[in-house]
């Protein structure tokens, strides 16, 4: 995994550089016009936002119940990426909504739950920062509950009749929309994996430094 970091960063940087041209070449969507193009960034960010919640939750389960100390590094890395991609989602969403719905924000289930998930990530990082020694376990417990929100967000649009487009929209996209979308998705995913790797490696190295420091004069 770790070897992929550098090529992934380079590739995603290159792809994100090219992406505006691809997006520009894609045809205008009939009803939305120009503003629809933000979707090419909004969709990957939103999916990775949810993915980071799942990664964080699974890492926390491994840390809490299977005593895998290294899993904590992945939990903290994915939580911080959750904040980043959550912020991207929550900024690009209203930009589109202002044009499409005429308001920046509506309180529909999916938007609400995304905001809630973002708050959970924020609370998680705050707990890790200010919780003092032992907060890693508490944060892991918190992350478990946070992960529960993900299926709720994903399914919510399909159960409730809401303003947010359905999840079935994506697979039925015409090819000329699909190409730039999946191109951006691949770029974002590689960026996500690379950042996740870097941040987790950093956390693991910090843990190793702590361990070395603590082991320094031990038997």
């Amino acid at each position: 995994m770790r070897k992929l970091t550098t090529p992934f960063i380079g590739l995603s940087a290159g792809m994100l550089f090219v992406a505006p041209w691809l997006i520009n070449m894609a045809p205008f969507e009939s009803t939305m016009g120009l503003v629809q193009k933000i979707f090419y960034f909004h969709f990957p960010a939103a999916i990775l936002f949810l993915v980071s919640a799942i990664v964080c939750g699974i890492a926390s389960i491994r840390f809490l119940f299977f005593k895998k100390a290294s899993a904590d590094a992945w939990a903290i890395a994915s939580a911080e990426l959750g904040l980043l991609f959550g912020a991207l989602t929550l900024v690009t969403g209203p930009l589109w909504a202002r044009k499409a719905w005429g308001v920046w924000w509506v309180w529909d289930p999916r938007l609400t739950m995304s905001l809630v998930l973002f708050l959970i990530f924020a609370a998680y990082t705050i707990l890790r920062k200010f919780g003092g020694p032992g907060s890693d376990k508490l944060a892991a417990g918190m992350a478990l509950f946070g992960m529960l929100n993900v299926p709720f967000i994903y399914v919510s649009v399909n159960i409730w009749r809401t303003l947010h487009p359905m999840t079935s929209v994506v697979p039925t996209l015409p090819t000329e929309f699909g190409i730039p979308l999946w191109f951006c998705f691949a770029a974002f995913t590689m960026l996500f994996i690379a950042l996740l790797n870097l941040r987790a490696t950093l956390a693991l190295q910090q843990a190793r430094i702590e361990a070395l420091y603590l082991d320094e004069d031990e038997a």
């Binding site: 809630v116 998930l117 708050l119 959970i120 707990l127 919780g131």
Partner: peptide, 13 residues
């Protein structure tokens, strides 16, 4: 201060 910060988002559902 941490209790409400952690609790409210989780119990939103």
């Amino acid at each position: 201060t941490l209790l409400p910060v952690l609790l409210y988002p989780i119990t939103v559902p």
